[in-house]
């Protein structure tokens, strides 16, 4: 995949987002695009009984993945701003690393629409999916 930014550009951008650093977000870049990773941590748990990651953390991870796919696709000094974001919680996310990939569905002049899917282990069994619109 042709990208506007390198993996090290994206790593640097992660370090500039305190919340992404706090979550422990990792961003890799390959021919498919951005592969985002969220290592499991006990303090990110929402349901201690299962245990399962907090839904908000899963949502935030999807949103970060969408943002980084956009950053990888477009060379623009401005950081896209989320207008809205939709999350479908498909399965509880257990005590494992989460992975996610995003696809820029439409890249307009002012607005970009991005789809995201997150999974653990088996990509055919997503834990969450989402889409959002970003102001460019």
């Amino acid at each position: 995949m042709k990208t506007a930014r390198s993996a090290s550009d994206l790593d640097l951008m992660v370090t500039r987002i305190p919340y992404a650093v706090y979550l422990g977000l990792r961003v890799d870049l390959d021919e498919e695009g951005v592969l985002a990773r969220l290592p499991f941590r006990n303090d990110l748990v929402g349901n201690a009984g299962l245990p399962a990651l907090h839904g908000g953390v899963v949502g935030a991870f999807l949103e970060l993945t969408a943002l980084f796919q956009l950053l990888a696709s477009v060379r623009d000094a401005r950081i896209p701003k989320p207008i809205n974001f939709n999350v479908n919680f498909l399965r509880s996310a257990g005590p494992l690393e989460c992975l996610a990939r995003a696809r820029v569905v439409k890249h307009g002049k002012r607005i970009a629409n991005v789809e995201v899917v997150a999974w653990q282990g088996d990509r055919a069994k997503p834990v969450a999916s989402g889409f959002g619109n970003f102001l460019l």
């Binding site: 500039r16 987002i17 305190p18 919340y19 929402g46 935030a60 949103e63």
Partner: peptide, 24 residues
């Protein structure tokens, strides 16, 4: 808190934190 920010320079909380708040 500092760790909730989307861009340290702007001081604005990252959207995902608001997702967590509203989910909770």
């Amino acid at each position: 808190g500092e760790r909730l920010l989307g861009a340290a320079s702007r001081g604005v909380v990252f959207g995902g934190v608001i997702t967590t708040l509203l989910d909770q």
